[in-house]
Nucleic acid binder design. Structure first.
Lengths: 173, 173
DNA sequence: CGAGATGGGTTCCCTGAAGGAACTCGCTAC
DNA sequence: GTAGCGAGTTCCTTCAGGGAACCCATCTCG
């Protein structure tokens, strides 16, 4: 629906949003992830309009997040499965779950629990640094321009190049 | 925009989506995170409609993701800052960056790099198990109903209670 | 044989959200 | 006294989401 396309921005958040930022998309992914793979199943379990579901599935297949597979041929029947790209999006979903559990679950507790295969514990996902393995949150990093910065149709419109995070000082001066 | 409110679903993904699932929301968060805190700055840097920006900011403040702070009083001037809840959402943004870098950046490389304070390395965020510290992706977990499951106005409409992940077998049988 | 069910959509209309531009309002600086 | 800034609000248009109905091929039941 958003008329502004985010896919062309030089920002990985915007480009990720371009893929799954439409309403229902993450919930569709989640349901495919847990094994709800057929059109009618998805429609019934989500309560989504069939029209919108068809649009989303088409988009997600085009983005190579889902694959459309014929699982029966004579009445042609299709199911949607996760690609590698889509499976890694589910890792992102795990983080959404984590945040939702912490900030929106309330007293009832989390609606769903996750048991880690490797250790068998009920746990949750935590952000760690790929280099040192230590905890890595948004407050633990500096933001620097990378090689893919400023490669778009907009050459030098915005003056901000070096972004410093967390400088809470100067605004009150 | 989405007329279906996701906030009432017994799903942490849906509830997280309810907070930041509208277009522009994550980009607004990202910009506040990097220090773009004022209305006009946000509007100019994103190219968002002023109307939509005002709506989003109101919503995010109401959701306690952002706080509206008066930084000058006589012409009243406001800025938006991240709350703790909002800061933790930025951790989620780091994961969106990770996925976007891997799957949408292409040959140009990531537009933005992140340097971890603790180790000084340019790195990225990785999902780890909070219990054992090992890698934890969506394919490494079992999904189980939690205490907050089925606490809504819909008592027992859907038959699916135990969700088993990755059972790719029975559909082709 | 016809009736209904199943799966996977498409078509239609209606409402409401996004985009965009113009306008407001309090205050300051020249 | 007029220009300008910051922070919105108002108005209009267009397009996407919601919902219901419809379509089509095949299988199954009686």
């Amino acid at each position: 629906m958003q008329r502004t396309r985010f896919g062309d921005m030089a920002c990985s958040i915007a480009r990720t949003w371009d893929v799954i930022g439409e309403p229902w998309s993450p919930l569709i992914l989640r349901n495919v992830y847990v094994g709800i793979r057929r059109f009618d199943q998805l429609q019934a379990s989500l309560g989504i309009s069939r029209k919108v579901l068809a649009e989303r599935l088409r988009w997600l297949v085009e983005a190579e997040v889902l694959a459309r597979r014929e699982y029966a041929s004579r009445p042609a029947r299709y199911e949607y499965t996760l690609t590698q790209k889509g499976t890694e999006l589910c890792d992102l979903l795990l983080f959404m779950v984590r945040w939702g559990d912490r900030w929106t679950a309330g007293e009832a507790g989390p609606p769903v629990l996750y048991r880690h295969h490797a250790c068998g514990e009920i746990s949750h996902v935590e952000p760690r640094c790929s280099a040192c393995g230590g905890p890595m949150s948004a407050t633990d990093v500096d933001v620097l321009p990378g090689p893919g910065a400023k490669t778009g149709p907009a050459p030098a419109d915005e003056p901000e190049d070096q972004l410093s995070v967390g400088d809470s000082g100067p605004t009150s001066a």
